[in-house]
């Protein structure tokens, strides 16, 4: 593994290895002194063209726990707004000797460009690009699902046979794309649930099922339901007019108390955050004992530690790619 650009690039072996590594690293995080010396002297750059405090802090924490030097590069204003071009930014980072670049960008494909252009030698980690991919989110979701639903010895295991619904704005969601790829690779059965306006043309070729009806999917018996953030502005005409009103959306696709109660007792509720309480998820669901949303955040650090570790300390070995 040279870069992590798309969840679709990961084989089952790659993915399970990352999850297992994350579990091993997480076990060290209960100690009083959490810092490991593994990446001492290595430089990780967080290159964020889009605001995302949560993801940036998660990567920063992960890198610091591994003793890497972390540089936060908030590059708001890219070539799109006639600032510095991605190329010049990349050349600058190369000159500074970055070992890994964690990139968040509003343009789909920007991490791919960074990795394939020859502008820099660093390992590239996609921390979310446009409406394309967010692979570490999918990995932390898979890690969370495995912890709760595969046991008692999850190491080495995949997610074979689990039934997962992903509900919400699939069209604009890099989280949905990444999760469909990874969960499928790990053997889970995924159903996307959304109003037809929020599903991309071409979704029928994805390795998952698609439904317009949340209640029908809930009735099939799920192991997990993942709620996606829905931006309120999507309902306005200027925002695309994808649905008539927030109220109609939550009536048809929101995880309210009634739907929460319809889940089997072992099922868990996920959300990549930040949540719109009262729109796609009710406070009852978000704060219930089924919710693993806060735990997802903690798991995010472990998974990102694993990714950085495998890319920078162990990942150049043939057996990992």
């Amino acid at each position: 593994m040279e870069h992590l650009l798309s969840a679709g690039d990961l084989s089952r072996t790659d993915a399970v290895r990352i999850l297992d590594t994350a579990a091993e690293l997480a076990a060290t995080q209960g100690r009083e002194i959490k810092k490991l010396p593994t990446l001492r002297g290595r430089t990780v750059v967080n290159l964020f063209f889009e605001d995302s405090t949560r993801t940036r802090i998660s990567f920063e924490t992960a890198a610091k726990r591994l003793s890497a030097d972390v540089i936060n590069f908030a590059a708001k204003g890219s070539s799109v707004s006639k600032g510095e071009s991605l190329k010049d930014t990349a050349l600058t980072l190369q000159a500074m000797g970055a070992d890994a670049v964690v990139i968040r960008h509003h343009a789909s494909g920007a991490p791919h460009l960074l990795a394939s252009s020859g502008w820099l030698q660093a390992a590239v980690v996609n921390a979310g690009d446009g409406t394309h991919q967010h692979p570490t989110q999918a990995l932390l979701d898979a890690y969370t699902l495995r912890r709760h639903l595969v046991g008692p010895q999850p190491l080495g295991q995949d997610l074979a046979g689990l039934r997962v619904a992903i509900v919400g704005d699939v069209l604009h969601s890099r989280v949905a794309r990444s999760n469909v790829d990874l969960l499928h690779t790990l053997g889970a059965r995924v159903t996307l649930v959304a109003p037809p306006t929020l599903l991309p043309v071409g979704v029928e070729t994805w390795p998952c099922e698609v439904s317009y009806h949340l209640d029908e999917v809930l009735a099939q018996g799920l192991d997990a339901v993942m709620m996606l953030r829905v931006q309120r502005e999507r309902m306005s005409s200027a925002g695309g007019g994808f649905f008539p009103s927030p109220l109609e959306y939550s009536r048809r696709y929101g995880l309210d108390a009634r739907r929460l109660a319809a889940l089997p007792s072992h099922a868990v509720v996920l959300h990549p955050g930040p949540m719109n309480r009262g729109l796609e998820i009710s406070a009852t669901a978000a704060d219930s004992s089924r919710s693993v949303i806060v735990e997802q955040v903690a798991n995010g650090v472990a998974v990102r530690m694993a990714v950085l570790y495998l890319l920078l300390a162990g990942g150049r070995r043939e057996d990992v790619s």
Binding site: G8, S108, G109, T131, R174, P200, V201, G202, T205, W206
Partner: peptide
């Protein structure tokens, strides 16, 4: 072009 490829690679479609 809006279709199978645009859906996968996350670029806005031109139908």
């Amino acid at each position: 072009h809006e279709g199978v490829v645009s859906a996968q690679i996350g670029l806005a479609g031109w139908p």
